[in-house]
Amino acid sequence: MSEQGILLESGTNELELLAVLINDQPFGINVAKVQSIQQYDQKSIAILPNKVPGVLGMLLYRNKTIPVMDLAQILDIEETIEYEREIVVVTEFNNSVNGFKVSGVRRIYRISWKDLVPLDQTIGDTNCFTGSVSIEGDQILVVDLEHILSTIFPDLIIEDVSEENLIKNERITRDQLQIIFTDDSSTIRTGVSRALKSAGFSNITEFENGFQTLQHLEMNFGNGEQDLSKVVLISDIEMPQMDGLTLCKNVKQNSNLKNIFTIMFSSLINKQMIAKCNAVKADNYVTKPETNQLIQLLDELCIGSAD
């Protein structure tokens, strides 16, 4: 199941969605995050003594214990339909394996990121969703598993900056590095920007999707007259409108933008995704939540530009 995503070519702005069901309402999970699908067995769940809201307990999975979360409870959906065989969707992202209980699964759909519509923030708390997409007459809300995980296990999303990385080398001018940071999650943007600024990287411009970022880069650096040696693009991969791989592909194919150092900063970095990053000519990649590795990589760029 987890290898489905490799079928997608790099930089096509496509994703595959696993449609899961809660009370017969479909919700979408990015297939690239899905490791397997298991039948839910309440007897196999070890209840935690100090119960965490939304966490059912621990499951022995492939010789390791993983937390299992109730997606209906997390999304505040009252389950009124009984399913004979409930499902646990086992995911892997942010270097972490977790299970999410759902009522059932429907099928996998292939869609374009441009068809994913961000939710209107005025309708209430929409942080648990990346956006919505209309498929075969159904409006499917795409679940933001990173945000959900951040509310339950914050350390898995944003890593604290180490004291070692707070120390600045005299040759490094961190504040002179122009960082373009793109992530559709406001939680991630706020946390990562705060971490980078605490280390002295103060020149950060934020965007919430690849389309906005590409417009900014073309407008501000597209004439080929600017020095790009101190410009860095840090981009998530999963984003509505335009994903990070497609953004990187467009940047590297533009003769006036191709020298912008591009870092893919994603929870999806694995062997298959590294191959996709290389295919679109990304300069490097860092797995969330390894903020310290990101800072070390930025420091290498600062030293290089100062020499």
Rank of each mutant, 00 (worst) to 15 (best):
E238C: 08
G244N: 07
S202M: 12
T205N: 11
D243R: 03
S185E: 04
R189S: 02
S198Q: 11
A199H: 02
L245M: 13
R189G: 00
N256S: 12
I180C: 10
N250I: 03
R189V: 03
V231L: 06
Q176N: 15
F207L: 09
E225S: 12
L196I: 04
I180Y: 04
E206G: 04
N256I: 08
T246V: 01
L177M: 12
F211C: 12
L233K: 05
F181Q: 01
M219V: 12
N250E: 15
F221N: 10
C248D: 09
N254R: 10
I180F: 04
Q215N: 14
T182R: 01
M242K: 02
I204E: 07
Q178Y: 15
N223R: 11
K230L: 13
R189T: 03
L247C: 07
I179Q: 07
N250L: 11
Q215H: 13
R171P: 10
Q226V: 12
F207C: 05
S185R: 00
V251K: 04
K230G: 14
I188W: 02
L245F: 13
G191V: 00
E225P: 03
Q253D: 11
L245I: 06
I204L: 06
H216W: 13
M239I: 03
F207D: 06
T182Q: 02
S185I: 01
R174V: 10
F221M: 11
Q212F: 05
R171M: 15
L177H: 02
R171S: 15
N223C: 08
T187S: 00
S185T: 03
H216F: 15
D183F: 00
S235V: 03
T182C: 10
P240I: 10
R174C: 10
N220G: 06
N203P: 02
R171H: 15
R194V: 07
G191M: 00
I204W: 06
G210K: 07
G244D: 10
T246A: 14
L214D: 10
L196G: 01
L196D: 00
